[in-house]
């Protein structure tokens, strides 16, 4: 009898242990949710319909915001702890599903910052045709000059002296000296999720749309604008 009580006690202890560890685990998970939230200053960015005020009483409207996020890595005090495999994600403001990236990671990894590329690296660029997020049907590949377009922002503004007042920024190019690839590092306070604001105004406010409204080739200017584009990404 005493023996069976002993076994019962042991079993209880075991169950309690499992529970307590489960409770601890609730703070961690096997995946990390990386969310992107396109904004213009403090307003939510809505494509096509909304007008946003820029300087001098001029306004701007957006029709497209698409960019590649690749090579997502997690760091703990600048020490690499985990890198996502096959890490290529096309974020498209017109498709809300693409704004939420779910990253599978080993359980219990500790980290306090995240690093990713804005664009597609040169090694991937020369591999030949690729599928999935990198399929050329995604509209992010230049046909007249091989290479991925890392970042697209399109819209209209009365400042642009172009057909239908359109502006188009297609930033890309992987070969020196016009390699557009940028790396962004952000500090994290949470190990299960992060929301990254993508403030288009941080990009546009540095550009005079009257002079600069069509960048569609790998060039010095494209590289400068790509550097500017990294400033759009801010942890919420």
């Amino acid at each position: 009898m005493e023996r069976s009580i002993y076994i019962f006690k042991k079993a209880l202890l075991f169950i309690a242990l499992i529970f307590s560890s489960k409770m601890l685990q609730a703070q961690d998970s096997k995946s990390f949710q990386l969310n992107f939230e396109p904004i213009f200053n403090n307003q939510v960015l809505v494509l096509n319909d909304s007008f946003y005020h820029i300087d001098n009483n001029d306004s701007v409207r957006f029709s497209k915001l698409k960019f590649y996020i690749s090579s997502i890595k997690f760091y703990n005090n600048n020490k690499l702890v985990f890198a996502e495999k096959n890490s290529y994600h096309l974020v498209d403001a017109s498709n809300s599903k693409t704004l939420y990236i779910n990253i599978n990671k080993p359980f219990g990894t500790k980290f306090n910052s995240i690093k990713f590329n804005l664009g597609i690296d040169s090694i991937t660029n020369v591999k030949g045709v690729l599928g999935g997020e990198l399929d050329p049907t995604k509209g992010m590949y230049w046909t007249w000059h091989s290479g991925y377009i890392n970042f697209k922002l399109e819209g209209t503004s009365n400042l642009c002296n172009t057909r239908n007042s359109v502006f188009e920024f297609h930033l890309g190019g992987f070969a020196a000296p016009y390699n557009c690839l940028q790396t962004i590092q952000l500090s994290l306070s949470n190990i299960t999720t992060a929301t990254v604001l993508v403030d288009v105004n941080k990009f546009l406010s540095q550009i005079n749309l009257a002079n600069t409204n069509a960048i569609m080739t790998p060039s010095k200017q494209a590289v400068e604008l790509a550097k500017q584009a990294t400033k759009m990404f801010i942890i919420k």
Partner: peptide, 28 residues
């Protein structure tokens, strides 16, 4: 030398306005 890989070559005539004037997405 606009195209650096054989796999990507067909994209050029498919998309060129004076040739096929089509998109690969619409071909698919």
């Amino acid at each position: 030398g606009a195209v650096h890989h054989l796999d990507m070559q067909a994209l050029a005539p498919i998309s060129n306005h004076d040739e096929m004037d089509e998109t690969i997405a619409n071909v698919v």
